[in-house]
């Protein structure tokens, strides 16, 4: 057990796995000598040397594809994508190549690679460097998509991702890199398993990444007794934990950082509603960002992702009125 920053937990997980498994290689832009633009590979080159730890050119399609091929041939590549948007130029290699390899080879090949990418809003990086974009991957069968919310899950999920026999995408909320937390090196997560961050019986709140902290604060502020489910894995998601929780509370809110349309929360709300329709005391709903690009201006950006105060308002509304509150942009008459 040790206290460390989120980004150091990532380094620790990678190093621990690399010590155990010589098939693991690691590459990305400025990850070796410079130790990562976000310092997420401090000491890795030094310990594991230039054969296993490499800097790449600015060629995301090239090095992502190289990871796919190396994985097919028996290595366990871990790659870093500095900002998730840069995967835009490499999507084919992930969605159409890596995700289809086990299928097309009828199980004779697999792609045990891990893609780490920083995601999320809140730091003033503007509309091309602040998205979460999990939905780019969440509807591609063959991929697994994870998102940690604190130092422990950053550590435990990355270790699990590296050990997994399939392509796994780990989306790291950039805003959490500097956050400190305790890390138990003995915990390796189970992919597809959610974590309960709080327990209660009035309402179930499902969140992911930096929204877990937002939801936690909102639960505190509102004084409700809530189950807080940190989903951790978007695909495959933990239906059992979520269903059991909603069976107990009969109410569900999903808090997402991404835009309203097409978010992973829709899948959860739809599934839970279809399974537990008659047991629900009020309609499940989602609290999300609006359907807009992420604005640079600090005041505007601070309204982009759901805030603790807005989540509090919506929780209290739902409990009092048994119906679905309007998003803030409708309440404030700014947009429809």
């Amino acid at each position: 057990m040790a206290t460390m920053r989120f980004r150091q937990a990532i380094v620790a997980a990678l190093a621990d796995e690399m010590r155990l498994d010589s098939r693991i290689i690691f590459f990305g832009e400025d990850v070796a000598e410079a130790e990562g633009p976000f310092k997420t590979s401090e000491g890795i080159l030094k310990e594991f040397g230039p054969e296993r730890v490499r800097d790449t050119p600015i060629s995301e399609m090239g090095f992502t594809g190289a990871a796919v091929g190396a994985a097919m041939m028996g290595l366990r590549p871990v790659i870093e994508i500095m900002f998730i948007e840069f995967l835009g130029v490499a999507l084919d290699q992930i969605v159409t190549e890596a995700a289809k390899t086990r299928y097309l080879s009828q199980g004779s090949l697999s792609v045990p690679m891990t893609i780490r990418a920083s995601v999320g809003s809140g730091l003033g990086f503007g509309c091309q460097h602040s998205q979460t974009l999990e939905h780019w991957f969440a509807s591609t069968p063959g991929l697994k998509v994870l998102m940690p919310s604190n130092a422990q899950s950053a550590y435990s999920l990355l270790r699990a991702a590296i050990r997994d026999p399939d392509p796994v995408i780990v989306l790291e909320p950039r805003i959490l890199y500097a956050e400190r937390g305790d890390v138990d090196y003995g915990i390796i997560a189970e992919i597809g398993k959610a974590q309960m961050r709080a327990t209660g019986d009035e309402i179930t709140i499902v969140a992911l990444g930096q929204m877990v902290n937002v939801a936690e604060e909102a639960i505190k502020n509102s004084g409700v007794s809530a189950d807080l489910v940190d989903l951790q894995t978007i695909i495959p998601w933990d239906r059992e934990t979520v269903l059991n929780s909603v069976k107990k509370t009969s109410r569900l809110i999903v808090v997402e950082e991404a835009p309203l349309s097409g978010g992973w929360g829709s899948e959860i709300v739809a599934y839970v509603t279809s399974q537990l329709f008659s047991a629900l005391k009020s309609p499940p709903f989602r609290i999300t960002a609006p359907d807009v690009p992420i604005p640079f201006n600090g005041g505007l950006e601070s309204r982009y992702a759901p805030t603790a105060s807005d989540v509090t308002r919506q929780i209290l509304h739902a409990l009092k009125n048994q119906d679905v509150p309007q998003p803030w942009w409708v309440v404030e008459g700014i947009a429809g």
């Binding site: 003033g124 990086f125 503007g126 509309c127 091309q128 460097h129 690009p293 604005p295 640079f296 201006n297 600090g298 005041g299 505007l300």
Partner: peptide, 16 residues
Amino acid sequence: MGKATGCCGGVGGSMH
């Protein structure tokens, strides 16, 4: 500086 008077109305920032 993200001001309304910026060439992109403050929604772009230094890179845009």
